[in-house]
């Protein structure tokens, strides 16, 4: 792990308090971490600990009530589509647009002309290996294909940072593993910085360099795990001793937190 790479995302004392019916709820408290250029960082934690809120704050979609998000050293106050793309669990493809048009959508918002948009969409489709589905509608594709289209769409504006909110959470185990490999392939080809939220400790360790572990009520970063597993990653790595040790460590951190949520976490292992 070389630490010479520049820092692209930094949070400083980030906090979020929701006031619902005058009773303030501390969703996130004192979140401070950094992500290096080209890094793959995962965030794990029990459900409802504020992972998604944190991601939306990193995307500039939700304002923080304390602290700051810095991207390239600049305070982020609103979405920065030239630098950051977001991908959600449900693919949120527009059902009335064809696959290629969906990939073009962020480019259309960015004001790119139609010819360039088409070329870019074609290139992205070939990157995710779905060129022959360009003229299909999202409902004609499987869940895994829709997520690949969603990745293609997120990459279309050529952002440097990809924020992914449980992108494979709704997929079956087999598709999920395939999508993990697919994502690593795309990551190594494009060199993007990826911030990845997941329920699955295995998925987090398998994909990333760094795993941030969150607790809930209030949502805090309780540990930063750098497992130092070799790349390229193969499925065999999951059976290795160092993988198991790292996973156990995260598991202990999370399960201390809350019994009900811990059992939920177990199910997604």
């Amino acid at each position: 792990m070389t630490s010479a790479r520049p820092i692209v995302i930094e949070t400083r004392g980030l906090g979020k308090i929701f006031s619902i019916d005058r009773a303030p709820i501390i969703a996130l408290q004192d979140i401070s971490f950094t992500v290096q250029e080209g890094g793959f960082v995962s965030l794990v934690g029990p459900s409802g600990c504020g992972k998604s809120t944190l991601l939306q704050m990193l995307a500039g979609l939700v304002p923080s009530t304390a602290g700051q998000v810095l991207v390239d050293g600049l305070i982020l106050r609103e979405p920065a589509p030239d630098k950051i793309s977001v991908m959600f669990q449900d693919a949120t493809l527009l059902p009335w647009k064809r696959v290629a048009e969906n990939i073009e959508f962020p480019l259309e918002i960015g004001g790119m002309n139609a010819a360039d948009r088409r070329d870019r969409a074609a290139a992205m489709l070939s990157l995710v290996g779905l060129t022959e589905f360009a003229a299909r509608y999202p409902h004609e594709l499987s869940g895994g294909m829709r997520q690949r289209i969603s990745i293609a769409r997120a990459l279309a504006p050529d952002p440097r940072i990809l924020l992914m909110d449980e992108p494979f959470g709704a997929l079956d185990e087999q598709t999920r593993i395939k999508m993990g490999h697919e994502l690593l392939r795309i990551w190594s080809r494009t060199g993007k910085t990826i911030f990845f939220i997941t329920h699955s400790l295995t998925e987090a360790l398998f994909l990333s360099d760094v795993v941030l572990v969150m607790s809930h009520r209030p949502g805090k970063i309780v540990d930063v795990i750098v497992a130092g597993l070799p790349r390229p990653r193969t499925y065999d790595i999951i059976g290795s001793a160092e993988f198991g040790a790292a996973r156990n460590r995260i598991w202990k951190l999370i399960s201390q937190d809350d019994d009900t949520d811990a059992s939920e976490g177990m199910a997604s292992l």
Binding site: G60, P79, I84, F88, T92, L94, I109, G110, P157
Partner: peptide
């Protein structure tokens, strides 16, 4: 979800009304 997504791509209010 689609409104949030469009916002993340930098869409303004008018664009969201028109496209979503």
């Amino acid at each position: 979800g689609q409104v949030v997504l469009a916002r993340s791509f930098g869409a303004g209010k008018f664009r969201i009304y028109r496209s979503i």
